[in-house]
């Protein structure tokens, strides 16, 4: 029982990170109908910016952790947002109106380019960081097995909840969110009522990228090791999460992320840690076969 609860906590933490990345996939899919395969790389860049920013802050002597976290968070979001915006501008916007396959190929190209770009600039070796925040609460203790939730896990889960609330408000209640939903439902009509469609799409990439950057910061401090290749696996898992939750649905992305995180944690704990990726991708296959619209996705039929 204790073991189960511990895995639940670990799985939720992991799931929060996947969920944050998955939202970027789902938002972009919703608005331009393509899978942004370079999104995992944006997350990887977010992790690298966080890593570098921590080193710089340490070097200039800012060691008060809440302040350092806040500064790094903002830097990671801003830099990743710039990358996200540029990817859209360079690789996707010129292909708007092209057959669906073209931006997809362009996305894969962008993904490979960004991996190599970071590899050349930062080297291929794994980067490791000292744990920034240690300690936590002991929730229960039984037969020598303790269930703990670390401060870091609390930070990750709380920050995820806060960001979700902020994003849900932006999309549900603000003019920008309405413009995004309008573009999603009928892009030509959105332009006819005065929405600047290109700008709205750019902002969608910026929002998705900044959430991915937060996820990148989280893995950097949670695992303490990053390399130029982490975006690939995390990206595909987050994509799986988005599909599981229902691609195009924001709550679905978060739910899918949590489920994927839980599956991975429990599979590693009770079956075999080597096959955790197989377990996750089996879910992708099963969802695509039996419920392609995902858990919260809606079939694309509307009364006309």
């Amino acid at each position: 029982m204790e073991y189960f609860i511990q895995q639940l906590i670990n799985g939720l933490t992991l799931g929060a990170i996947y969920g944050l990345i998955a939202i970027g996939y789902t938002m972009v899919y919703g608005i331009i109908g393509m899978i942004n395969f370079a999104h995992g790389e944006i997350y990887m860049i977010g992790a690298f910016v966080s890593f570098i920013a921590f080193l710089v802050l340490g070097a200039v002597g800012i060691t008060y952790i809440p302040l350092a976290l806040l500064v790094v968070l903002l830097l990671a979001m801003v830099f990743s947002a710039i990358y996200g915006w540029s990817v859209e501008r360079i690789a996707y916007r010129p292909l708007r109106g092209a057959p669906r396959l073209s931006p997809l190929i362009s996305a894969i190209g962008m993904s490979i380019f960004l991996q190599n770009y970071v590899q050349i600039l930062q080297g291929a070796r794994v980067k490791a960081m000292q744990p920034l925040i240690s300690g936590g609460f002991t929730l229960m203790e039984h037969d020598g097995f303790t269930v703990t939730i670390s401060y870091l896990q609390i930070f990750i889960i709380v920050l995820t909840i806060v960001l979700m609330a902020v994003f849900a408000t932006v999309i549900g209640k603000t003019a920008l969110g309405r413009a995004q939903r309008a573009c999603e439902q009928d892009r030509v009509m959105a332009s006819l009522v005065g929405v600047n469609v290109d700008r709205t799409i750019s902002l969608t990439f910026v929002m998705g990228a900044s959430l991915a950057a937060v996820a990148g910061l989280m893995v950097t401090i949670y695992y303490g090791v990053i390399d130029f290749y982490i975006g690939f696996l995390a990206g595909i898992k987050a994509f799986t999460a988005a599909v599981l939750g229902g691609i195009g649905s924001m709550p679905g992305a978060m739910l899918g992320g949590l489920l994927i995180g839980l599956v991975e944690a429990f599979w590693s704990a009770y079956f075999s840690i080597e096959y955790k990726d197989v377990a996750v991708f089996s879910i992708l296959v099963l969802v695509l076969i039996f419920r392609p619209t995902g858990i919260l996705g809606k079939p694309e039929v509307d009364k006309v």
């Binding site: 939903r181 309008a182 439902q185 009928d186 030509v188 006819l192 006309v304």
Partner: peptide, 13 residues
């Protein structure tokens, strides 16, 4: 301003 062919209201709003 235009009210276009097929109305094109935003159905999920």
């Amino acid at each position: 301003a235009q009210s276009p062919e097929g109305r094109r209201i935003f159905p999920r709003m």
